[in-house]
Write a protein that binds this DNA or RNA. Structure first.
Lengths: 113, 113
DNA sequence: CTCCGCTACCATGCGACACAAGGTACCTGT
DNA sequence: ACAGGTACCTTGTGTCGCATGGTAGCGGAG
């Protein structure tokens, strides 16, 4: 709970697109996303983070939603990526790789210095 | 100026340690750091960001400072990484690599889906 | 029937970076 | 020696995304 604080900052800006990536070709609902992200190192989060994020994606037209009945529990709101969402994801992926390369270079320089 | 907004978020949490990396083995002053970061893709920033950041690092004991005369201009406050700073940098580097690997994996999955 | 897990959602707060202005010291040209 | 420009540091305000904690409803297990 203490060392994890670093990841809270690192997640900024990336979490949004990680969600978008998880929605590619496969509709998912909120709680499912929390569990999926929880299995990935450094991306653990909670519903309180995911739902505002999903609402934002919806406002921006990057995802669409639809209700479906569940066999065990309350109905679920499924989120699907729009074409615009996939496009935004692709653009981010390029930016992300550039950014990673820059940071890696600096950290590497620091290790030598 | 529009697409750069993504990087603003990505910088969060990493900028601090990029500065720390630049200080390894080589004392630098604030303005110099701004220029050095400005040459790196995605890490461009301004004094208004750097100085509060440096103040934070100093409060946390990760850097030390000392004034030195300049041959051309006002005196400069030089920042040096402490042993604690180098240690924190090493810890972050490990976290960063874990995080990158996670994000890369998710983005990759999204491209296939 | 009651408790607990699942599911969705909202209100509030914090932390880190951006933007912009202000201030002081030094140098240079004339 | 004075004016203006540059180097350098500082401070205040704004923005935005994630965290924390809480509400509410449904359904199954004990």
């Amino acid at each position: 709970m203490v060392a994890e604080k670093v990841f809270t900052q690192l997640r900024r800006g990336t979490l949004e697109f990680c969600v978008l990536a998880l929605l590619q070709g496969e509709p998912r609902y909120g709680f499912e996303l929390v569990k999926a992200l929880g299995e990935v190192d450094g991306l653990v989060t909670t519903e309180g983070t995911i739902y505002p994020l999903l609402a934002r994606l919806r406002r921006e037209g990057l995802v669409e939603t639809s209700w479906r009945e569940s066999e065990s529990g309350p109905p679920r709101r499924y989120y699907t990526s729009t074409a615009e969402g996939s496009q935004a994801l692709a653009a981010f992926t390029a930016d992300w790789q550039r950014f990673c390369a820059s940071v890696d270079a600096i950290l590497e320089r620091g290790r030598r210095g």
